[in-house]
Design a protein around this nucleic acid. Structure first.
Lengths: 164, 164
DNA sequence: GCGAAATCATCTGCAAGTAAACAATCTGGG
DNA sequence: CCCAGATTGTTTACTTGCAGATGATTTCGC
């Protein structure tokens, strides 16, 4: 980590041109993993949005369908908590899926506050199609990384998320 | 990576409770590095915002001061390009720094379209203070990672950013 | 030199995420 | 049973980053 010392501004504005101003970002990304990660995530999100431009489902809607298919009917609260999507965002997300006829808001049998969001038969093909697009999506976003590097990145990010 | 196979929705809505719905996010983060990265970046950004709550400088303002100190007066265009901050956002960023008396918008000697954003003497202490806070900031954001893991993460993220 | 195109800083509108308030409903203490 | 507090879904307001338009200025082709 001694490759790029913090370079304390001991004499502010003194050194005239010590650093290449055309490649300054490269230096910054070395010292500040937080900044590098934010900028990289922006790139990843952008490339995924481009990949999904023509498709019917947003990323969030795809995740909702996937979770419902994996664990069965859920309340919006459960979907929000597990998918890390805010409750108020989940409302519009389910609205869109309901308008598309892919889910129904059924009443939760034991708690009339909550819905039991449920897949319709039409959801199956839509989910398969979205799921099939995932590898291409990941290749576009993480194309510069090898498979091993992607696994390492996943592991490290998982530690930040504090998930087993 | 065969730990969590993609689990194609062969029979949608058929398997009743194959997956633990209380730990579904953990599974998702394993299969979808893009989602994991987005969520982790949100956490990192949040913890940094909390750390900087009482301070005078935003992250962007800190970066601007740092770059100006490292490479000398810059146009807003150069700052935007290297710090990966949109031009229109940079306007407000420099406005704040100018109001705080830390930079001045001087005219570029050879191009009257551009400014030469320049540090004032008051910027020195502010930059030193912000710079001193960086290690604490990174510890809060990446506390669950060892130093070696942070370096690995920085390297992998750097590859996504496509910087040497 | 002169006009077209590009560039810099700025402004406006837009999309997305977050926080807070709200009504309906559930839960627990008395 | 009854009431205070918590929870679920929803709406609204606020913040933030981004795309596009604009005016001033520079650069390039002729």
């Amino acid at each position: 980590m001694t490759a790029t010392p913090p370079s304390r501004p001991a004499s502010p504005g003194r050194q005239p041109e010590a650093v290449d101003r055309d490649r300054y970002f490269s230096r910054l990304a070395q010292e500040r993993p937080d900044i590098a990660m934010c900028r990289a995530t922006t790139l990843v999100a952008r490339s995924i949005d481009e990949e999904l431009a023509g498709h019917r489902l947003t990323v969030a809607q795809h995740l909702v369908l996937k979770m419902l298919n994996d664990v069965g009917p859920c309340s919006q609260q459960e979907l929000s908590a597990q998918l890390r999507i805010d409750r108020s965002v989940m409302v519009g997300c389910i609205d869109g899926l309901e308008d598309s006829g892919l889910v129904r808001r059924e009443r939760h049998p034991r708690d009339r506050r909550a819905y039991a969001v449920t897949l319709t038969p039409e959801a199956g093909p839509a989910l398969v199609e979205a799921e099939d697009g995932v590898p291409r999506l990941l290749d576009r976003a993480f194309g510069t990384l090898t498979a091993a590097e992607r696994r390492t990145l996943t592991r490290l990010v998982g530690k930040i998320l504090d998930v087993s």
